[in-house]
Write a protein that binds this DNA or RNA. Structure first.
Lengths: 210, 210
DNA sequence: TTCCCGGCGAGACGTCTCGTCTCGTACGCT
DNA sequence: AGCGTACGAGACGAGACGTCTCGCCGGGAA
């Protein structure tokens, strides 16, 4: 069970070049933002990074995997620059509706920002088709974000603002699902007003039973 | 404004070979189901269909566009075989919750069926990244389906089962968004129980105000 | 310090698919 | 009957894929 996979001899990660790793991330992010994901090639990333192609193929299985790691690295560094690890936690002012609207509005703004929209779309699309990558995408990017909602909703339950019998996970999907639906399928424009209406309608269903 | 696009001389659609068109659809669907979307190539479709590559390039801009048309053609033929054009309308037994659960359970079953899952995933993913194709995907496949929900919800409003001030469009997205979210991102399993819980929670928010 | 192992940059290599193009053929209007 | 155009077939160059083979270099072991 624990034998090395017969596919290939695994490289020695302890001898890995941190310098090349970072150069690859920088090149990948730059190329995607400049020319778009579809036109970005592994050969192009290698050339831009001043790196041999084999160095990429040795450590990543696909272009999408490189970009995902680059994206995660970027997020981790930005996160770290802000200090604490609770940076993205949803605020708790005591007003659940206001707190959720604040976060959903910010999410709407991100989705309307090409710098965020383009690479995230590309990763999401790739993850939809490639289960392996999709699992990593979901686990590393999506789920942590969803956790913020779970905790905020649980706090609201403790405060008596939400029916204690409601499933926080289901509640969160009612907020995030419609937003992603509009975003990914471009059915209707994403606005702050939409975020507000969404929160209001969902919270009506979550109100404690009279 | 109405001059022919300088890109290319448009082919004469009236002389188009119906035989080749059908052969291309059949080959595309067969190859996608046999070897998967990613491994399906335009050259492969042409060979399988006994058709010149140019015949495909003359009428479609991309592999995804071919598959979308093939899918629509398949759906149209299956639809026609069933008779009426109201075939997929959501039933109205007077019990809104039961009717919605029936439809959402059927949707869950489709999403769990590889024969439906694989090509739909591929098309959705392609549409997410390619706005042109995404618009056609949304318009031809997604929106008609959403219309069924709108009409059923409006009927419920007329019957007094749903708050008349609620926006049917928003209500529908509360049902469909979370389902698609779980489906596309594979966060948690899609079950009939989930569909039921979803309907119950959403309808709580849609109940007429006391 | 010396030695040596393995990742490194570089790029050649064969393969594959792309999208364009150019044949000669065959089909459907006029 | 003749004419035009889509058709089947496939050659073609471009470009990216993923593998490979070079020396080179750097760091842990002797």
């Amino acid at each position: 069970m624990s034998e090395p996979r017969p596919t290939k001899a695994a490289p020695d990660a302890s001898r890995r070049s941190e310098r090349s790793r970072r150069a690859i991330f920088d090149a990948a992010l730059a190329l995607v933002s400049e020319t778009g994901y579809a036109k970005t090639t592994i050969e192009g990333i290698a050339a831009r990074a001043g790196v041999g192609k084999q160095t990429i193929y040795r450590w990543w299985p696909s272009k999408a995997a490189v970009l995902l790691d680059a994206f995660l690295d970027l997020a981790a560094r930005a996160n770290e620059a802000l200090g604490g690890d609770a940076r993205s936690e949803i605020p708790d002012t005591g007003d659940l509706a206001a707190d959720l609207k604040y976060v959903l509005r910010a999410t709407v703004d991100e989705m309307n920002d090409p710098a965020f929209d383009a690479p995230t779309r590309a990763l999401a699309a790739e993850g939809i088709v490639d289960p392996e990558l999709g699992a990593r995408f979901t686990e590393a990017l999506l789920e942590p974000q969803l956790g913020y909602y779970v905790r905020r909703i649980q706090a609201a339950q403790a405060a008596g603002d939400v029916d204690p019998d409601a499933d926080p996970r289901l509640a969160l999907e009612l907020l995030v699902g419609p937003l992603h639906h509009r975003w990914l399928h471009r059915t209707l424009p994403l606005t702050h007003a939409y975020a507000d209406d969404l929160v209001d309608l969902v919270l009506r269903g979550l109100a404690p039973r009279a």
